[in-house]
Write a protein that binds this DNA or RNA. Structure first.
Lengths: 207, 207
DNA sequence: ATATTACTGTTGCATTTGCAACAATAATAA
DNA sequence: TTATTATTGTTGCAAATGCAACAGTAATAT
């Protein structure tokens, strides 16, 4: 069922260093990993840690557009020129490999056997990203805050139906595009309804 | 700026028929083009017409997740197994090329020169799709219905700041995930505010 | 250790939004 | 043509939501 397994990702990282020019870099909390640029077209691959795609509009409102984690791909190619500013920001210690887009689209001169494999893996990583975006769109299509919360929790809970807030409720509210105080209020209501149990940053999903 | 030009897309279609197995098919209005399937992994490419990605939840609520048009790519690989049902539905007469995913990932036996080119174009088409998804997420991140409407209109207006509703207000409301009657109400308010002018299905954006 | 900043939890209130219902018109089918 | 179905435009109303403000706690910096 899963398109990309560990072995293949390992192979991918090896192939990358054998074929195209890559740069590996470590970021610490809240550092700028990548911003929009029509010139320097880069693809990034997270080898360790987490990051967010964050948008800031001209009024200064920031929204978290996406959560990224280990083995996720990202690129400034994914964004159109816009009034709003879009950045990829590290969330804790994060390790990233950068790949130059031109290295991908031009066939490497040595006609190396790695190139095809790399492109195919990138292709599958993109499909994976596409899937995650569709999930976010599905989340946002939910009509009420309660539905959004439940969808979000069910996506992320572990096998014991537990979800631990590793970031903050503020960040979750931003991710769901809802008001933070309303998120808290809905969580309380959901607890009263018996949908969840909550103790500080640990939530058990009962439904 | 644009990653994919006409010439390249033409070449792509030629290459496709030379290398991988493809099936071309014509659909008429509201026909099922593709549904979720973990087994038959297919990639579709719209050569003519329009389509929608439509989701139906278990209560029967349908939402239009995406608009697709000529030269857009889609796939059942983009969707996770979910309680909701997701379909690609034609919107008027639509012509589609289907590509078998396995044909893409396996190197074709003849080691043909087209294969690489095809995969690279698919890669760029996926990036384009990714971009469109981000736009939809950005749209949904807007806090009020008015902001959503304006973002939507500005994205789609022509050089004279005119947008013509080719589908229906009902469809637009579904696409924006807002109540239809509220969409109408907001449009009226926006006209009163002087943000737009509207005559039936023609809207002029003034701001 | 203390100050400073950020996050949590709560509430009242105003506004926005969705829902329901309806008549009027437009589009489509028989 | 006529009947049937779908869309448009409108409104009252209830419910959901965001906003503002605040105190209390936690986390971080000095």
């Amino acid at each position: 069922m899963k398109t990309l397994d560990e072995t293949r990702l390992l192979q991918f990282k090896k192939n990358l260093s054998s074929c195209v020019n890559i740069k590996s870099k470590t970021f610490y909390n809240k550092e700028l990993i990548l911003s929009y640029s029509p010139i320097k077209k880069k693809i990034g691959f997270i080898t360790e840690g987490k990051a967010n795609i964050v948008k800031t509009d001209k009024e200064g409102n920031t929204t978290i557009m996406r959560d990224l984690k280990e083995n996720d791909i990202f690129s400034n190619l994914f964004f159109q020129d816009s009034e709003d500013e879009i950045y990829i920001i590290s969330n804790g210690k994060t390790e990233v490999i950068f790949i130059d887009y031109y290295n991908i689209i031009k066939n490497c001169n040595q006609n190396c056997p790695f190139h095809n494999s790399i492109v195919l893996t990138l292709f599958d990583l993109l499909i994976e990203d596409n899937k995650q975006q569709n999930e976010k769109i599905e989340l946002l299509s939910k009509r009420t805050v309660e539905e959004k919360i439940l969808f979000f929790l069910k996506q992320r809970m572990n096998e014991n139906n537990i979800f631990k807030v590793t970031t903050s409720y503020k960040a979750i509210a931003e991710y769901l595009f809802v008001d933070r105080s309303n998120l808290m209020r809905e969580l309380k209501k959901m607890e009263e309804k018996g949908l969840i149990e909550r103790y500080e940053k640990t939530i058990k999903i009962l439904s």
